[in-house]
Amino acid sequence: EQIEAIAKFDYMGRSPRELSFKKGASLLLYHRASEDWWEGRHNGVDGLIPHQYIVVQD
């Protein structure tokens, strides 16, 4: 089940696996990879999304 999230802040990925996005961006989350990271998608690209930078939608 995919979960929708909105970016709270701009984020610049620090490795090829991390996604970069702007504040207000819509993100799709697949699952929680760790306490700090989600596996997800932004603009058709899959990668890691930092939990602290997003708001998960109910």
Rank of each mutant, 00 (worst) to 15 (best):
W37V: 07
R41A: 07
H31Y: 07
K23S: 13
D46N: 11
P16W: 08
Q57Y: 03
Q2I: 06
V56F: 12
A7P: 00
A25H: 12
F9T: 15
Q2C: 15
M12P: 04
V56E: 15
V56C: 14
A25C: 07
M12F: 15
W37D: 03
S34P: 02
E4P: 03
Y53I: 07
S26F: 15
E18F: 09
A5L: 02
E4H: 15
R41S: 13
K23H: 05
N43H: 13
W37Y: 10
Y53M: 11
G47F: 01
Y11N: 05
V55R: 14
S34V: 04
F9W: 05
A33H: 08
N43I: 05
H51I: 04
H31N: 13
G47D: 00
K22P: 13
E35Q: 09
A33C: 10
H31V: 11
Q52Y: 03
P50N: 04
F21Y: 02
I54K: 01
A7D: 00
L19I: 07
L27M: 14
G47Q: 01
E18R: 04
G47P: 00
L48H: 06
P16L: 11
S15H: 10
G13K: 11
R17Y: 12
E39D: 08
H51E: 07
G13H: 05
V45A: 14
R14P: 04
R32Y: 03
G24S: 08
V55D: 06
D36N: 10
V55L: 14
R41T: 13
G24I: 00
I54N: 02
R41E: 09
L28N: 04
L28D: 11
R17H: 08
A33I: 06
L29E: 00
Y11F: 03
Q52V: 06
G44N: 07
Q57S: 11
N43V: 07
R32Q: 10
Y53D: 09
G24N: 10
I3Y: 04
R41W: 10
H51N: 13
G44T: 13
N43R: 11
V45R: 11
R32W: 05
E4W: 14
N43C: 05
H31S: 10
P50T: 01
D10Q: 09
I54V: 12
Q2P: 06
Q52F: 12
A25L: 02
D58T: 03
Y30I: 15
N43K: 15
G13I: 04
G24V: 00
G24P: 01
N43Y: 11
F21W: 00
L28Y: 12
D36R: 08
V45K: 06
S20E: 05
W37T: 09
A7K: 00
V55Q: 06
R41Q: 09
V56N: 09
D36Q: 13
K8A: 12
V45Y: 02
D10K: 08
L19W: 00
E39V: 07
I54H: 02
I49E: 00
F9H: 14
K8T: 07
H31F: 11
Q2S: 13
S15M: 10
Q52L: 08
E1A: 12
V45M: 06
V45P: 02
R14G: 14
Y30F: 14
R41D: 05
Y30P: 01
F21K: 00
K22E: 07
D10I: 02
Q2W: 12
L28F: 08
N43L: 13
V55S: 12
